[in-house]
Design a binder for these strands. Sequence first.
DNA 1: CATCCACTGGAAGATATGGCGA
DNA 2: TCGCCATATCTTCCAGTGGATG
Length: 442
Amino acid sequence: MGEKSVFDSQTNIITDAVVFEEDYTPDEIYCRDEMKTEYVQILRPIYKGRPPKNAFLYGDTGVGKTAVTKFLLEKLADDLEKKHGEQTITANNLSILSSEFPEPHTVASGENADLTVVQLNCQNLPTKGEKGTSYQVAVALVNQFLSEEDELSTTGHAPQAIYNRLYKEIDRLGGTILIILDEVDAIGDDDTVLYELPRSRADGKISEARIGVIGISNDYTFQQNLSPKVQDSLCEREIRFPAYGADQLATILRERADVGLIEGSYSESSLAIIAALARRDSSGSARKAIDILQKAAEIAEDRGKEEITEAFAREAFEEIRKDELIEDIKQQDAHKLNALNALAEAHRLDKVPIRKKTLHSTYSKIVEDNGNKPIAVRSFHNHLNRLVMFGLVNEVTENRGKGGGRYNVYELSQEMTPQAVNKAINETDDISWVDVTYIKDA
DNA sequence: CATCCACTGGAAGATATGGCGA
DNA sequence: TCGCCATATCTTCCAGTGGATG
């Protein structure tokens, strides 16, 4: 053996990095037995060749909604194959359930196709805003059935034409079609597609195929805000996924650690601490807990240690939080970055909390100095509000009463620092008209 | 307890971009 | 080419509002 490469860490704790990745499906899913039982009841008709049921799943992010779905669908595909002894499943996204839209499609043309699973993440619709529309979901679904070169564009069509096209494609495929709409709350107020799909067969829009729709959401209120018509059909069955408790998170971590880490590199107590941190910060997200574990292992490796200590766990937690924050900032558009920049400037000058009007003039100055035209106060107000919703900016309402009036004051939220804003803006690719000259070390 | 300030935030319309089908 | 459609974001207008003040 030759010399050790500089790229190699002194110690190796992680034996299998795949285990920590987003789309890894463990052999067994822990602590979700009740949900699995209910879910099986929903999928059972498909196995028996009966019309599928519609269902609605809800629970916070990282509590296993997608994981259980993927797990059970793979099992269902296996079992169906065993039962019929031939390939009866055409699942376009089954193996890449957590992937992004749009994805290459492998929808089979098969005459034998008894079951087709179509999975769509409504959060990745080609809209710029955070909310998509029913129209876009319909377009995206149609595109799932088409080959890549035939894909429809996302605008320009009459809505009814899209729905008709969708029914045509569904009918052409035939068999049982299970449509899984992940992050379905990302479809704004317009729930047309959720109404149309489950009823399409009853309405005579399709005749060959049977459709089941499973909506997945992390917004508890979403389902309540749906129109009664949709609630009737889509929410035929409901499964609630509660948050993982700290002990459950620890169980999940132990399972991952057993598979992906060297034995002896982790202790029960360090896993318990990671579980507690994730539990507190993210209301029980297994994803978060696993990320922290991975990061802690990496930190330990970098330091040449063979064990994940409590200190590494806490360090990993802090680092992940910081990364998330920077990521959040980087995702903002130029207007919001400029607004954040102005707010960071106000922090440096110790002028916070600052009133919107004052902040707007600071913002205008920065933008004008850079040779660009600032947006009107009202629009600025909108952007600022969005930043508040994202949790990047704090808003406090003050009321000075008669002669003073009511107004809001703003400052960067607690975790935010002017430095974090600078770092994020510097790392942003599109800073074409974000004025970087104002970004200096505080 | 009515007043009244300085805002907030809803609504509507303008502008721009990008795309379809005839 | 023209007319239509979807989306995004800006601007203008203004009714409504919370609560300390008088």
